[in-house]
């Protein structure tokens, strides 16, 4: 049986997630692994927006903020399980993305960048300033999802970080499967056509505004889920989850890894999430190194790390 590229990508991702723990020296690394997978989920959404549809956003952490605080606040105020907070956050983010998407996505290039940037900062400011609701800059604690209890009930004998790692592995595989499916679907083709030329896509009957909005809403849901999951993993959430730097981190992961492909972006998420852990040895120089890596990769590998390395690998072979 011949497998499609999509199937290969999913199998490769599943194998890497399954085998990575063999290289973990301690259970602390499961936590870093879970964080990589959460960031991987967010950047998979950004691939749909950047890579498929060719749009830019410097404010997607705003949706993560909505997701994170929904997971924190809804269980407290409505007395329901945190999983409903996560779902409500995703619905809220989708609704908000739908409302602001139409006017915002009319803008192009740097104007789109500043509008999305403004959206992210607005969310951050509300979370930071409405202290009686959100706890202000100090943040607030988040009820546990209860994964550990579930694993104990099933007698799996895993600690919290391990449970989260495997849980996130499954979530990311589902997220990647949906994104890869979208790529080859008629919607995905329409998105890619407007990436190449909006005018050409329009003349061929693609409803440009509608498809841009679709990509924006989908990526907002991915970001919101990632924000919720990160809050639930940490048991804590602060307004920084919606901050400009968080948006930039995600953009950097997506572009550095290779904005065109899901695997590339997840690779970028892995590199940039693990890097600060590795660089703590050079504490003083951490920022310099990070900035330097961003510049060098983008100057010498404009397509991103993953596609460039894949090409190199093919040539060597």
């Amino acid at each position: 049986m011949r497998l499609s590229g999509k199937a290969w990508a999913l199998i490769a991702l599943a194998v890497i997630i399954a085998l990575a723990p063999l290289a973990f020296p301690s259970s602390f690394y499961y936590r870093v692994g879970a964080l990589i997978l959460i960031n991987g989920l967010a950047v998979t959404g950004l691939v749909i927006l950047f890579g498929y549809a060719g749009q830019i956003s410097l404010g997607h952490a705003g949706f993560a903020g909505i997701g994170g605080y929904a997971a924190a606040l809804i269980p407290i105020h409505l007395g329901v399980h945190p999983v409903f907070g996560l779902i409500a956050g995703a619905i809220l983010s989708a609704g908000l993305a739908f409302l602001i998407g139409r006017p915002v996505l009319r803008l192009k290039g740097y104007y789109l960048a500043v509008a999305t940037l403004g959206f992210g900062i607005l969310v951050y400011l509300v979370l930071n300033n409405e202290a009686q609701l959100t706890g202000g800059p100090d943040g607030m604690s988040v009820e546990r999802l209860g994964l550990r209890a579930l694993s104990d009930a099933l007698g799996l004998g895993l600690n919290t970080s391990q449970v989260w790692y495997w849980f996130m592995g499954v979530v990311l595989l589902i997220g990647a499967y949906l994104a890869l499916n979208l790529f080859t679907s008629p919607t995905g083709r329409a998105l890619r056509s407007l990436h190449d030329s909006e005018v050409a896509a329009g003349t061929l009957g693609v409803d440009v505004a509608r498809y841009k909005l679709t990509a924006f809403v989908i990526s907002a849901v991915y970001a919101s889920l990632a924000g919720s999951l990160q809050a639930l993993l940490n048991g804590f959430v602060t307004p920084d989850v919606a901050g400009f730097l968080h948006s930039i981190q995600w953009v950097t992961m997506t572009v550095l890894g290779g904005a065109g492909t899901v695997l590339g972006a997840i690779f970028g998420a892995a590199v940039l999430t693990a890097l600060p852990q590795a660089l703590t040895v050079f504490k003083e120089y951490e920022h310099m190194m990070l900035g330097l890596i961003m510049m060098v990769v983008m100057v010498f590998m404009p397509a991103g790390l993953f596609p460039s390395l894949a090409k190199l690998f093919r040539r060597v072979r």
């Binding site: 950047f50 830019i56 410097l58 290039g109 740097y110 960048a113 930039i248 953009v251 950097t252 572009v255 550095l256 904005a259 120089y285 951490e286 920022h287 310099m288 190194m289 990070l290 900035g291 330097l292 890596i293 961003m294 510049m295 983008m298 100057v299 010498f300 404009p302």
Partner: peptide
């Protein structure tokens, strides 16, 4: 100059990288 012709988003990442680098320095 070496990145001439790169896309808007690549240039955003490059100049933000430069900003982080200069701040660290």
């Amino acid at each position: 100059e070496p990145a001439r012709g790169a896309s808007v988003i690549s240039l955003i990442v490059i100049t933000i990288g430069a900003s982080i680098f200069l701040r660290g320095l």
